[in-house]
């Protein structure tokens, strides 16, 4: 153990001992309430989300438009498959990457392209040369238009960020109202053994670093397509 640990901990304890800081000036002192009802208290302040699934899907669609996420609602997995084929033809895909997962398997089944599968390990250059990455997800977040992915649900860390087009397949049952619900979902699903990587993807990669002008596809995908099976 490095000596820095006890040095820093001692400094912290020394700094805090008998030296209380003034409480923040808040209009409603809610420190204790916040500790007890945490997560749910936030819902009072954060952007509003409708209670029903149709409202949540509509909100997700509306926010996606602003984010330039290409959001499609499809009735069946077959319809999603057809849409994927159209995308492949339109963009002239030569190779795609995906991972084994019931919906991604059905989505790419029979597609006439070489597929790099990431779940058992892969070469970085091999993945880098793919035209699209097709993944599942944990949940979709209505409040932010976000897609929550993890190692488990998106074939590792890089599949959903390295190829230039990220295609996500999700079911309507995966829609959740907000980030708090997304965290509840992963805690329920994985317990204490959470995946080492989880990410909220909110639109295609972007930058405004040159004159604050929006450019899509800075380092991650230039396009993000979300296919939602109703």
């Amino acid at each position: 153990m490095n000596p820095g640990r006890s040095i820093i901990l001692n400094r912290i304890r020394e700094a805090l001992r008998n030296n209380p800081a003034p409480r923040p000036h808040t209009s409603h002192s809610q420190a204790d309430a916040a500790a007890e009802t945490h997560g749910h208290a936030q819902r009072e302040w954060l952007p509003k989300v409708g209670a029903t699934l149709p409202e949540q899907i509509d909100l997700f669609a509306k926010i996606s438009e602003g984010l330039k996420t290409e959001f499609h609602r499809v009735p069946t997995i077959d319809a999603a498959h057809n849409l994927l084929k159209q995308l492949a033809a339109a963009e002239g895909w030569k190779k795609i990457a995906s991972h084994s997962h019931h919906d991604t398997d059905s989505l790419i089944q029979g597609i006439d392209l070489p597929v790099v599968r990431t779940e058992k390990g892969y070469g970085i250059d091999e993945l880098e040369s793919c035209d699209a990455g097709v993944t599942g997800c944990e949940v979709l977040v209505a409040q932010t238009g976000g897609v929550m992915v993890s190692v488990e649900s998106a074939g590792g860390r890089a599949l959903s960020v390295l190829p230039p087009h990220h295609v996500v397949i999700a079911r309507a049952s995966q829609m959740v109202p907000d980030l708090t619900a997304a965290f509840e979902h992963v805690k329920k699903r994985y317990g204490k053994n959470l995946p080492s990587f989880m990410s909220f993807i909110t639109g295609p990669s972007r930058t405004g670093d040159i004159e604050r002008i929006l450019v899509l596809g800075a380092h991650g995908p230039k396009r993000l397509t979300v296919l939602l099976i109703d």
Partner: peptide
Amino acid sequence: NEGNARLTTSL
């Protein structure tokens, strides 16, 4: 926003 941190921490 760019995806560079994700790549930096993945590859």
